[in-house]
Design a protein around this nucleic acid. Structure first.
Lengths: 350, 350
DNA sequence: TTGTATGCGTTATCAT
DNA sequence: ATGATAACGCATACAA
């Protein structure tokens, strides 16, 4: 490994000068700068991150703690975080798939001194204890954990989104609206369920316990959810799933049972993953800009790291909006005429 | 931040002893060990990673370089890498969403001295130049880049998978089999296309240029691909898409055109993402264990880091297998009777 | 404008 | 079994 001393010797200057060149200090003569830069390039020098961190107290690294997350959500939130961090010269130390407090704890501990701040997503609250042990001055942004105690936090407008989707179903004439909720003790899940219940109340529909079942946010549980719903004495005319994966599982189950969506049963999901519009029938959903969630969280964290003057904890909620397609029976357009059928970024297609 | 000196002072020992306790050296008395451990716990001490790295030359961190990757693939490969790394006490420094050489280069440079080894996924070869500049002794594992020059590499059995799927379609009687390929200059895409062409040759079907179109691995491009295919003079009776997302887009387009899958046109994909079995009709696909790809890559890398005796570069190929569902017209079972309908891990469902 | 000296927190070497 | 000390590579206060 080529160090700062190697460059210094080769360029005939002191290590301090090389350091100055590298850090764009203006306390260095133009032709010295050029010579040093040339030598550094020739030798393929780049500074040792550990030494730099030790000296400057900064790591230019953001820690990201994620729960056991599958699919689209994970990749999109990471994309948002990564792009924002990189744009501002920060690295990402990622730790995902934490199934319990123990693991979250260990992960947090081992990140000490390796990151300047943390983005923590822990919808089931497993990381709460570990977070509490962190110094209050250490920058942390909470994702989808509800309003954190004394910490910056970001959430999706779960309640509003669920409430307006269920309201929409009710306005279409549905009264027996079922919900396939997410896991218990999950913040997103709880809020979406609350939105569902309140929406029913607002239109004067008595909530029926048999019309509320729980899944785990994955396709299979949506599939099974339908069996349990149809086994009950009241048959739903509409099903609202707490996310798109479960909604897709539900549609699959309905299809296998010979029921037509939306004629026999209307279906709606949450998240609006890219696949939603390509289902048949296309899936109505509550649109969430997931990458933006990661982006905003990172911006807030990096600002906190830069300012270091601890301001009051801020809570931000990301707005959602309904995307009505065929599965809920409200609109008759297929994917071809979906106004949102736009590539999200430049593709590689000819 | 509490340092090793704080603990030493508080416990009435030298810093060296604290270090020994922390690193499980047996050169320390039992009651000293206990006392130091207690103080460390009380003070909430954990060693500064930067200082440790500087001294030991090791970072216990693996760098992960990923291209601009969407959806299931990204999250699964990361999961595999993360779990394996964590089990062996390693962190993950992730840099994703690189769209060109420039960015990949910058990311690689900035990881210098911060990681002990690298897992690089660069199916379009954008990172090749940067990799070549790395010291030959620096541990690197290539993912889906083909057989790397002088580097360990892992790939999916793209060619075999595509070939056997197309062979299967031919055995079902199809002759006009179209392909919606992936982007050009992408290793996975190239190999899957090659498998398609060879399979056709083997059954004595002359390849028709009009039956080969390109997409970008996303749903929208599969949708558009169908328009272009059906605009040609030869109408395909089967469509093989280079991945499931494009296959789903294709099915959506066929549905919008009033064509039935599989009666009018058979469809098959690649990857077998969890959603595939919940499509209607359920999607036939080439199954790939993506998480395992990440897992194997990490094992190989960590072994290389541990051994440090550079052995010959190894190339490993991950087997695939066909999962035949309804979309290709071979089997008549819905998702309910799909033998593979098993939860991939414990869910949170009641 | 440049060089010298010091210390960041830790571990390894040597001494005791 | 434990302590003192040096060194890892870099950035900075201070000297020149």
């Amino acid at each position: 490994m080529v160090t700062i001393k190697d460059v210094a010797r080769e360029a005939g200057v002191s290590a301090a000068t090389v350091s100055r060149v590298w850090n764009d200090s203006d306390l260095v003569g133009p032709e010295t700068r050029e010579r040093v830069a040339a030598v550094a390039a020739r030798l393929g020098y780049s500074p040792n991150g550990a030494a730099r961190s030790l000296r400057t107290k900064g790591t230019r690294t953001v820690g990201v703690l994620l729960p056991d997350l599958h699919g689209e959500f994970f990749s999109e939130v990471t994309r948002g975080i990564d792009q924002t961090a990189r744009r501002r010269g920060f690295h990402l130390l990622v730790s995902s798939s934490h199934s319990d407090q123990q693991e979250a704890n260990a992960a947090l501990r081992s990140m000490r001194g390796r990151v300047d701040g943390l983005i923590i997503m822990s919808p089931d609250g497993d990381a709460q204890r570990a977070i509490a042990r962190l110094p209050a001055t250490f920058p942390v942004v909470l994702l989808n954990c509800g309003v954190g105690v004394g910490r910056d936090s970001l959430t999706i407008a779960n309640y509003d989104g669920a409430r307006s989707m269920v309201g929409h179903l009710a306005r279409l004439g549905h009264r027996r609206i079922a919900m396939i909720a997410g896991p218990e003790r999950n913040h997103d899940s709880d809020e979406r369920l609350r939105g569902y219940r309140d929406a029913l109340q607002e239109v004067g529909v008595e909530p029926v316990p048999e019309l509320q079942v729980r899944g785990d946010f994955r396709e299979g549980s949506g599939y099974e959810g339908v069996s349990r719903l149809l086994a009950g004495r009241v048959c739903p005319t509409a099903i609202f799933a707490a996310n798109d994966c479960m909604a897709i599982g539900a549609m699959s189950a309905l299809g296998d049972l010979g029921l037509d969506v939306p004629t026999d049963v209307a279906v709606a999901g949450f998240d609006d993953i890219p696949l939603a519009r390509f289902m048949s029938p296309s899936l109505s959903s509550v649109h969430v800009n997931i990458a933006q969630l990661g982006e905003r969280a990172t911006q807030r964290l990096l600002d906190a790291i830069a300012n270091e003057s601890a301001s009051d904890p801020l809570h931000e909620e990301l707005k959602t909006h309904l995307v009505l397609r065929r599965s809920c029976g409200a609109q008759g357009t297929g994917a071809a005429r979906d106004p949102e059928l736009q590539p999200r970024s430049q593709g590689n297609a000819p």
